[in-house]
């Protein structure tokens, strides 16, 4: 079985999914990532799905689970690079990816994590600071 590599860049874990994952690979990634978050103490996870030409309900559920797990482990997950055709298909499929933050690309995803982290350090009640988040 193939494994998806997890890279550590500063305070962020970057997962770039480059292959058509089997369900088992997806579950493995979920487990690997939880371990790496704890081992590294990173506060941000970026999952880059630019290369994925489909996201079905299984992968969608895996992304949601990763987001929830990392939240429990005090890390922010951002899914980046979803292709338009994939987004349109997910809407039609009825999958809303609730609870997942998204960004257009890795760079914007890093900004998002930095902003979320800064908020935590310097909390203030101002205009909605999460304007860039994608989830309601």
């Amino acid at each position: 079985m193939e494994r998806v590599p997890i890279l550590k860049i500063g305070d962020i874990l970057l997962v770039s999914i480059q292959l058509d994952m089997s369900d088992q690979t997806a579950v493995q990634l979920q487990e690997d990532l939880a371990e790496r978050i704890v081992a590294t103490g990173c506060h941000g996870v970026i999952i880059d799905i630019t290369a994925l030409d489909i996201v079905d309900s299984f992968v969608g559920r895996m992304l949601s689970t990763i987001a929830s797990i990392s939240k429990v482990l005090d890390a922010e997950t951002v899914v980046v690079g979803m292709r338009p055709a994939v987004a349109i298909t997910l809407v039609e499929l009825g999958l809303s990816l609730n609870g997942i933050r998204t960004a257009l690309n890795v760079e914007r995803g890093m900004e998002l994590i930095a902003a979320a982290h800064a908020d935590e350090l310097d909390y203030q009640l101002d205009d909605d600071p999460d304007a860039e988040t994608a989830t309601p």
Partner: peptide, 10 residues
């Protein structure tokens, strides 16, 4: 294409 492949996957 994306829609039909996704449906097939499900």
């Amino acid at each position: 294409q994306t829609k039909v492949v996704t449906a097939a996957s499900e």
